[in-house]
Nucleic acid binder design. Sequence first.
DNA 1: AAGGCCAGTCGAAGCGCTTCGACGCATCTA
DNA 2: TAGATGCGTCGAAGCGCTTCGACTGGCCTT
Lengths: 337, 337
Amino acid sequence: MVTLAEVAHHAGVSASTVSYVLSGKRSISASTKDRVERSIRELGYHPNAGARALASSRSNIIALMVPLRTDMYVPVMMEIAIAVATTARTHGYDVLLLTGEEGPEAVRRIEGSALADAMILMDVELHDERLPLIRETDRPAVLIGLPADPTGLTCVDLDFVATGAQCVEHLFGLGHREIAVIGEAPAVYERHTGFAERTLDGLRTRAGELGVRVLHRPCEGTYDALAATLARIFDERPGTTGFVVQNESAVEPLLSLLRRQGRAIPEDVSVIAICPDQVATQASVRLTSVAIPAQEMGRQAVERVVAKLRGQDVDEVALLVPELTVRASSGPGPAKG
Amino acid sequence: MVTLAEVAHHAGVSASTVSYVLSGKRSISASTKDRVERSIRELGYHPNAGARALASSRSNIIALMVPLRTDMYVPVMMEIAIAVATTARTHGYDVLLLTGEEGPEAVRRIEGSALADAMILMDVELHDERLPLIRETDRPAVLIGLPADPTGLTCVDLDFVATGAQCVEHLFGLGHREIAVIGEAPAVYERHTGFAERTLDGLRTRAGELGVRVLHRPCEGTYDALAATLARIFDERPGTTGFVVQNESAVEPLLSLLRRQGRAIPEDVSVIAICPDQVATQASVRLTSVAIPAQEMGRQAVERVVAKLRGQDVDEVALLVPELTVRASSGPGPAKG
DNA sequence: AAGGCCAGTCGAAGCGCTTCGACGCATCTA
DNA sequence: TAGATGCGTCGAAGCGCTTCGACTGGCCTT
């Protein structure tokens, strides 16, 4: 392994000079700099991460806590994770992947061992156990998601309240007055995951204002579960003509079941999904949808965490504005009787 | 931050003693051990990762290189990644998430900086650029996937040749003699990703032996792309009665299109998928499938990498035996005429 | 011409840990 | 009873880097 000392010797300078060339923290003459940089290249030098971390107490690592459960909103998670990793690299950071399994203990471990300089938490619950720890630590942290009380925390999330409202408005605008919401799996609500509840809030509030009836049903993403849910919905509200789907994996089953029942989309029923654009455009009907900007969320989380590491101030809560794209799955509702 | 020295002082022993309690590399009396462990707990001590890495030249980190592309076989990748992270933790390792973006350079960087003790590579191409580097380094590495020449490498993968063969055998056993294969997106083949080509090999070879006609068509996972592909298939081979689907996202569109065309599953056509069990059971028809054991692959990759880190010998290539589960999407083929 | 200043460089002191050799003491062996 | 053996512990020497203070020479002031 090539060391700083060897580079220094090769370039005929002292170790500290090489270090300053690398960090740019002191001015170095152009000629020296050139020589050092050439030596670095010729020897194929890479600074030792451990030594650097020890000496500078900065590891250049950002920890990313992803949910353990792999059964829900997987594409979104994956997209965020990859966006986080690539964005982090552009700032010189690497990403440490932590699963939710360790729980709050992971936060303590990272903090104590100085393994990472900062943390990004995904899948934040309304009353997340990790939050007290995050508030105490002076290591920067950014949440992807919005807890019940974001005081003192930095959060990045889609504005799910507005998202819910937009869905209702769109359907209302088309003439729909009875809407069913196919929600996430019941477990998501039991865990009080922020986004699910907030979407619902937005939906209900706006529906109340507009005089639209809303029926919400959590639902697993399986075909069978959806069939049962759908049956119950039409049983309870036969006049339902609009659907809002929050559970990605429920999209195809829903379309397929509606078709089988002879309900045409969008002639008889309109469907609007809350999902990444990719899902919306790949579905068997091009779906009207509000996009979940997964990449953007990952990117922004990193930008914020890096800004904090630089000591810059960062707004506490950044809510991305939802964008609704009209595609082929929504159309005029029933003529008023 | 609590340091080793503080723990030592608190427990009334020397720093090295605390270190030996932690590592167990020398025997320590029960009473001393107790005292030290109590001090550790009371002070909430966590060893500094950088210092430890520097002194021991082991970082206790495993690097995981995931593909950059987020558009393909995402659930499989995510499951593997999470399995890797959780399994690694049980062995005391953390996982560093690298995207394919950096390419071979990432291998050099990790190697040079001693950031990770070992690497796990996903999404291995047949002639992957990273392989020469992996072969040279003495840092343990495990591939998830199988390159053209695995000499000197440790690989974990599903036996995709056998997988392809099993699919053909199953359909042949049911009486099907004309089979269409809905493959991965063309890009996957262009990159010569191992698993896709190997599956095809297995399919074709066994089909040749059994006298089954096989038509292979790469296909994007969108509804439209699949509709076009399907049309061409039936155009070219009207007698096709069996489908093998390798592209997860093509599953639902295929089922839906077949239904629309009035082809009943499994009465008129049989469909068999190569996908995680979860996908197979959630589809609108419970799919006969050969499972992609994503978690198992992640787990085994870690076990192997950890074994290598301990200096144990590890078989070069571990191919998991594919398991076909018969569900509702496959049935007797056309009566022989 | 003397003083001050700054850019450019160096030396040395750690950062917190692991690990090697050494030491003291008790126990065994011959 | 002398020497060998082993266990449990300690001190000290790094691991490879960053960073602080100090030094040197040139250039600007006055």
